[in-house]
């Protein structure tokens, strides 16, 4: 009896060991964010950048939210990871990698994610835990969360001035119009690729800070007084136009 039990135990161990060697049908993918201005890596606190309007500026802080990673499979189906939300903070490199777990392996045609939170997710109080709770957006402006806090200092003719380039949903509170404008948008990379458990699945997202300010819509810090834009429908719209050019995405092959 004892001998049988021992054999059974040994067989169980062998079975477990073999199972681990089977190819998984799911794996993780990593989306890595990097920041630059034109082609150079972003240097925080360095007064050396010039936007399309000719304003000289430096970046002191950047926080942003990305969400809802989505994959279009070669069979035409779309898989949306509708609970996926990620906070990126320039001051904390550990936030530069967004890991999505349990992604089905296969051939895909495109990958995308939402910059910010779409209207289904952007609900006041939905993310009470830090660090996302520091991104709250005033209820009077539509509520929910900032999609981006890009904090800069820039040189005007006279002095060093702050620029809070903060994006989020906007409520038209002038007059009777209380429509909430959703300024989130989808960043997409369209090209066939394979998700496999045989190699690391890494996508690199490059964020070009300067493109928030042009060239599609040139944002001149002098004209907007370079201070705050949360309550400016016009600037939020311009940023919305510029936004898709800010992001570029590539798949990195890591064997």
């Amino acid at each position: 009896m004892k001998r049988k039990s021992l054999i059974l135990l040994a067989l169980s161990l062998i079975f477990v060991a073999c199972k681990n060697n089977e190819e998984s049908t799911q794996c993780n993918i990593n989306v890595n964010f990097s920041f630059n201005v034109n082609r150079d890596s972003l240097e925080r606190d360095s007064m050396k950048y010039v936007n399309d309007a000719g304003n000289k500026y430096m970046v002191t802080d950047l926080q942003m939210i990305v969400s809802k990673l989505q994959l279009v499979h070669s069979d035409g189906t779309t898989q949306v990871f509708d609970k996926s939300v990620h906070f990126v903070d320039l001051a904390d490199t550990s936030t530069f990698t967004w890991t999505i777990e349990d992604v089905p392996i296969g051939i895909y045609n495109s990958i995308g994610f939402v910059f910010g939170l779409d209207s289904t997710m952007n609900v006041t109080g939905a993310y009470p835990d830090p660090p996302i709770n520091e991104m709250i957006w005033p209820e009077s402006l539509g509520g929910g969360y900032h999609y981006l806090k890009l904090n800069c200092k820039w040189l005007s003719d006279k002095e060093l001035l702050p620029l809070n380039f903060h994006l989020g949903p906007e409520q038209m509170i002038d007059g009777s119009d209380t429509t909430v404008i959703d300024n989130s948008f989808i960043v997409t990379r369209i090209s066939d690729f394979e998700i496999s458990s045989k190699f690391e699945n890494v996508f690199e997202v490059n964020v070009d800070i300067n493109k928030w300010f042009g060239p599609t819509c040139i944002i001149d810090f002098d004209k907007i007084k370079g201070v705050w834009i949360m309550e400016s429908h016009e600037i939020q719209e311009m940023a919305r136009e510029n936004g898709p050019n800010v992001f570029s995405m590539n798949k990195k092959t890591v064997k």
Binding site: T124, G125, Y127, P128, P130, N133, E134, I136, P138, E139, S140, L141, G143, Y145, N164, W228, M230, E231
Partner: peptide
Amino acid sequence: MTEEGGDCFHCHGGAANPLFTTN
């Protein structure tokens, strides 16, 4: 809670950050 008002919320939170600090 407004930028053109006291603009306290960026550092001190609000209803959706009821700790009233970002720490």
